[in-house]
Each structure stands twice: as C-alpha cells, then as structure tokens.
Design a protein around this nucleic acid. Structure first.
Lengths: 102, 102
DNA sequence: ACGGTATTTCCAGAAATATCGTTATAAGCG
DNA sequence: CGCTTATAACGATATTTCTGGAAATACCGT
C-alpha cells in the first residue's frame, strides 16, 4: 500500500459526516444498508449523502450492490483493516524504539 | 473520544504530506526531530511545513519542545493508539457480526 | 547590542471541498 | 407504456485547504 492511498482513505474518513456514515455501515454488518436507510439514520440530505458515499466508494472503503430499485451499501472491512494495519506498522516502528529506549 | 475528534485526527493524517511528516516523526522515535530536520528529509518548503505541523499539533498527534533555537517535534503515540483503538472497536462490531454470520 | 540560525506569521491566489436544490436515470409494477 | 420509488448526476455557491514567498520573531553566541 502506498502512502497516497492510505492518505486518501484517511481523508475520506476524516469528515464527521462520512465517519458517521461509515460507522453506520459497519454497525449494519454484512447485510449492509440501503442508501435511503443511511439517509434516514443520519439525516443528511440525499444529494449530500450521495456525494459523501461516492467519496467512500472511490477509496474502496464502501461498496454498493443493486437490489431492485434500492442500492445496498456495505463497509469494506478488508480495506479498513489493511489501512489500520499500515498505520499500526508505522506505529510499531516507534513501539520498538520506545522499548529499546525503555 | 468523540466522533468529531477522531474525524479531525484522520483528516490531519489524510494528507500525503502530513502523513509523510508524521511517519518521519514516528520513525525518529523518542528523540523526535527538529523542524529543520523534517524539512530536510521531506523537502517541503519551510512555511508550508510549518502549517502542516501546526495541523498535526492542533489535533495532538504531534508535540513540540523547544531546545535553544530549534524546535523538536515528536509523534504522540498515545493519541495515535487511542485513535486506532476507536476505529478497531468500530470494526470489531462488524467482526462479531461477521463471525455470527460465518 | 549585533549577527546568524531556526522557525513562524502574514498574505494571497489557486484549487479542492461541502452543501443541497433541481433534474435525470434506473428499476419495478399495473 | 406510464406511474412510482430509489438514487445518482448536474450545477451553483460558500467555505476551506494547500501552497510558498516575504517579512517578522525567537533564541543563542560573542
């Protein structure tokens, strides 16, 4: 994973509205949530929400699947874990040094 | 930790330049790095770097300590871990559900 | 106090982002 | 086919961010 990709994902999550949306999707689990359901839970206006969802989709943190007229959104756990893993590895560098120092 | 704080931290890290700066600080470990040293390693112009550092400091991911004419910057690991911990907890909600489903 | 080094603050323009009303598109149903 | 629902794309505006040069400030040795 490249630094730019990680940064893009963090930026996507670095907005209260999007973080809240993402959290709702995580909580929804495997079943995911229809866009309209996310809208109902967050109260974000439709067009704004669509915009934010696209940002999350663009960095692959969220995926969409059509079911009839509704679009189901799901959190992409693998990408999230990869991102967190990268950050932890960065932190572990320091952890090791901290341990050396201690 | 509130959602807004987390988002602010993610946003701070969600910029390639700042993520790189932060990574350099993490790698430097406990000793930290002088601003000038960060500048030398990243090649970011001084004023631009100063701005980015302030953003990282504002969300407490980085701290500064003066040593004579130079300012030493250090990564604040505790804050980083708290942030990652929050995200992991969010993810664990899903993990549990994923396990139920599996 | 003077000179030098390290760093920030000031400023301003370009670019990106957030927001949301309106309009368009896709899918199902009778 | 026309109606309804669900959602995305368009478009416009206000705000924020990013960037970096120039000037100001902080600290130190002499």
């Amino acid at each position: 994973m490249q630094l730019d990709h990680i940064a893009a994902r963090l930026e996507a999550l670095g907005n209260p509205t999007r973080l809240e949306v993402y959290r709702q999707l995580v909580r929804a689990g495997e079943d995911g949530l229809a866009v309209g359901e996310v809208q109902a839970r967050t109260g974000v206006p439709r067009s704004t929400l669509s915009h934010h969802l696209h940002k999350l989709i663009a960095v692959e943190l969220v995926s969409q699947e059509r079911q009839g007229t509704t679009l189901i959104c799901r959190a992409n756990y693998a990408v999230m874990h990869a991102t967190l893993g990268f950050l932890e590895r960065e932190c572990c560098v320091d952890e090791a040094k901290a341990c050396d120092a201690a």
